[in-house]
Design a binder for these strands. Structure first.
Lengths: 235, 235
DNA sequence: GTATGCGATCTTGTATGCAATATTGCTTAC
DNA sequence: GTAAGCAATATTGCATACAAGATCGCATAC
């Protein structure tokens, strides 16, 4: 149900860029930060990284500039450190995602082609047919479902923004597992979203998606044990 | 009425970073791209820039990496060029902004302090009292109004995302002037938004803000002469 | 006039050098 | 034992060097 938060997808931002040492270092560091392999606040020493990647400091430094612009590393008095996100910041990101993905669902209700809606239905069916222990496929179909809606929104930049707003949850302790109840509710949410999109009801689709994402983050709050209010009800 | 699109505000992303040649080059280029002084698709030659800024290629290259991550320059077969935004991309950005700023207005209705609401009212009053020829103050009060709502949303990242989504309109031919009718409608929009926030009606605030932004972009479409459908009605 | 080769030039990607400054750790005074 | 001072070290910001590859222009062939 929460797989989209764990998706590793190459950012399309540099689609036509030839691979260089810089891009390789950047992608690797990005993945490691996002996956939590590099712990928050650990300092990033240029020379160490250069040694590790067997390159000179130049491509390392340029990678760090990209990471900085992406908000994944923060400046220290000297050099950079892996950014740490507070619970408060995670809540803020949840709200951004809520705003964006909810809107995307509404757009999808308006713009989705018949084929796209059929595809969405097919994904949902596949998901319902899964055995409850099949976590891998559950993760996969969830991602597919959300991705298909983003695509159907007909807005590449919105898709991109949603993707980036997802990055920021990885630093937090992440739970892949939700309770059986939570999973069932998630499926019911998908059902509602799909139904609203099929009926071309943008308003309902947006509300359903917001409720769904809110539920996702409620699991986060529960698992992290932090008493942070989720995004309030809007619309 | 459209001033927020022209706002130049330092991005808080690198707040604690000491000024260096890199940051100076980056800020200058960023401003010039966003302001349209560097034309879309013009190639950015490292050596030329280095010469112009009287620095070596190193800080120039690192600036370009940041600009690339910010989406302001795009890779070419060789080097970088100022990014050009198509009408389609501008529409996409408008939708992102609609989603974000609408949601921010909804949050503001829930979270704004009494003082923040009073401030919002004061800004609106100042705006209404302006002489119609006072374009400068009209621009300023508009920015203040929108900024105050973003602050009242209590979500720094949302604010930041809205700010960044604004960058991308600068490349397009920009009109500062709207017709008298459009200005009046803009003020009426503000009135509605303010009223909804005062009454703690998140749903109404969000709808009002969406309508307002949609109207803003309608002016864009009119001025650019492009027949692009604005964002559809959602919520 | 147009196309083709080919060399000169331009531009980038990467490595390295160097000076400035932050940090560390040791020594010494108390 | 703790604090202060100071020298050694680590690390960065920037400049420069150089090779690889793209691009351009010109000469030549047709």
């Amino acid at each position: 149900m929460y797989a989209i938060l764990l998706t590793k997808r190459p950012t399309p931002m540099y689609a036509f860029e030839p691979p260089t040492r810089l891009t390789s270092v950047f992608e690797t560091l990005r993945r490691e930060i996002v996956a939590g392999e590099l712990r928050p606040n650990s300092p990033l020493i240029e020379l160490d990284l250069a040694e590790r990647f067997e390159v000179s400091r130049t491509p390392v430094r340029e990678s760090l500039q990209r990471l900085a612009a992406a908000g994944l590393v923060v400046p220290r008095k000297r050099g950079w450190a892996v950014r740490e996100f507070s619970t408060e910041e995670i809540r803020e990101n949840a709200e951004v995602r809520l705003a964006l993905e909810g809107y995307a669902a509404g757009l999808a209700a308006i713009r989705a082609s018949a084929a796209q809606i059929a595809e969405l239905k097919a994904i949902h069916e596949r998901r319902l047919a899964l055995h409850s222990s099949n976590e891998k496929m559950r993760v996969k179909t969830n991602r597919e479902f959300h991705d298909a809606i983003m695509v159907a929104s007909g807005n590449g930049r919105l898709t991109n923004a949603i993707y980036h707003s997802g990055q920021f949850y990885f630093n937090a302790p992440i739970a892949r597992a939700a309770t059986g109840d939570e999973l069932a509710l998630g499926n019911a949410d998908h059902e509602l979203i799909l139904s609203a999109i099929s009926q071309r009801n943008a308003d309902a689709a947006e509300r359903a998606m917001r409720a769904h994402i809110k539920r996702t983050f409620a699991v986060f709050w529960r698992l992290t044990g932090k008493d942070v209010a989720g995004p309030p009800d809007v619309a």
